[in-house]
Amino acid sequence: MSEHQSALLLRKQLADLNRNAVEGFSAGLIDESDIYKWEVLIIGPPDTVYEGGFFKAHLYFPVEYPLRPPRMKFITEIWHPNIDKNGDVCISILHEPGDDKWGYEKASERWLPVHTAETILISVISLLADPNDESPANVDAAKEWRENYPEFKRKVARCVRKSQEESM
């Protein structure tokens, strides 16, 4: 797929998201002149420890999209087993397509060209509600989630408060 085709596809996906809003997030461009760099605002899902939070993240799409996955990075501080301390999201559907050389993931769990910005964001919201502590990007958060949940909740609550203050 040429750069032009991927840009057209991304413009269509962004227009669709803005026309038919999906509960839990909003999306736009970081810079109006670059369709490959999106800014998203994820609202902490109800009935989770992230409820009430406003978490800003960036999606960076490669020119080979949809044949290759974007990268996603939280800009707002967030404490989560599958988001590393730099904010990079570690979720199977954002991993390069094909077999996992370490054998942790099936090819069907990894990036597939049928995924869209919407399916990625819905998957990340789902990940907030239900972390995968078997394959953590933030080992400390995963250990805390398993072994000291009250402390995990306290750290998340601090991130939620900070995200609320930053969004004002």
Results as ranks from 00 to 15, higher is better:
Thr116Asn: 00
Ala57His: 02
Gly53Arg: 01
Asp31Trp: 03
Arg158Tyr: 09
Pro46Trp: 04
Pro62Ile: 01
Phe55Asn: 02
Arg110Ala: 13
Trp145Ser: 06
Gly52Ser: 11
Ile78Val: 04
Ala15Tyr: 06
Val40Ala: 15
Ser123Pro: 02
His4Ser: 14
Thr116His: 05
Leu127Pro: 05
Ser26Glu: 15
Arg146Gln: 14
Asn148Ala: 14
Trp79Phe: 15
Leu67Ala: 00
Asp88Gln: 10
Ser92Leu: 04
Glu64His: 00
Gln164Cys: 11
Phe61Trp: 00
Val63Glu: 11
His4Cys: 08
Leu127Cys: 10
Gly98Lys: 11
Arg71Met: 12
Phe54Gln: 10
Tyr36Cys: 13
Leu128Ile: 02
Leu127His: 00
Val40His: 02
Lys85Arg: 10
Asp16Gly: 11
Glu23Phe: 07
Ile78Pro: 02
Ser108Ile: 14
Leu9Arg: 15
Pro46Val: 06
Ala107Glu: 14
Asp133His: 06
Tyr65Gln: 02
Asn82Asp: 05
Leu17Ile: 15
Ile120Ser: 02
Ile35Glu: 08
Ala129Gly: 15
Asp140Val: 03
Gly53Lys: 03
Tyr60Lys: 12
Ala57Ser: 02
Leu9Tyr: 10
Arg68His: 14
Gln13Phe: 04
Trp38Thr: 01
Phe54Lys: 04
Lys56Thr: 12
Pro113Tyr: 10
Ile125Cys: 13
Gly28Lys: 13
Leu10Phe: 08
Lys153Leu: 11
Ser123Phe: 05
Ala7Lys: 04
Ala117Trp: 03
Glu109Trp: 12
Asn20Lys: 15
Asp34Pro: 06
Thr76Lys: 04
Leu8Arg: 14
Leu41Gln: 05
Phe152Ile: 13
Leu121Trp: 07
Asp130Glu: 07
Gly87Glu: 01
His4Tyr: 08
Trp145Ala: 08
Ile120Thr: 00
Pro136Trp: 02
Tyr36Gln: 06
Phe54Cys: 05
Asp140Leu: 04
Lys155Ser: 12
Leu112Trp: 06
Trp38Pro: 08
Phe25Thr: 00
Glu39Asn: 10
Leu67Trp: 03
Tyr104Lys: 12
Glu96Trp: 07
Glu96Val: 07
Leu41Val: 11
Lys73Asn: 05
Ile91Gly: 07
Leu10Ser: 06
Asn86Met: 10
Asp130Ile: 03
Thr116Ala: 05
Glu134Met: 13
Glu105Thr: 09
Ile78Phe: 00
Leu41Glu: 05
Lys37Ile: 09
Tyr65Ala: 01
Ala27Thr: 06
Ala129Asp: 05
Gln5Ser: 09
Arg19Tyr: 09
Gly24Met: 01
Asn148Ser: 15
Lys155Asn: 11
Glu64Ile: 00
Asn148Val: 10
Trp38Ile: 09
Pro81Lys: 03
Ala137Thr: 00
Val63Gln: 10
Ala15Cys: 04
Asp130Asn: 14
Ser6Ala: 15
Ala107Arg: 07
Lys155Arg: 15
Phe152Arg: 07
Ala141His: 07
Asn18Phe: 03
Val156Pro: 05
Pro66His: 07
Glu118Val: 01
Ala7Pro: 01
Thr116Glu: 05
Ser33Leu: 08
Ser108His: 13
Val139Lys: 14
Leu121Ile: 03
Leu67Tyr: 02
Pro70Asn: 02
Ser2Ala: 07
Ile75Phe: 06
Ala15Met: 13
Lys153His: 12
Ala107Phe: 11
Leu41His: 08
Ala21Phe: 09
Val63Lys: 07
Phe61Ala: 03
Leu67Phe: 09
Arg110Thr: 12
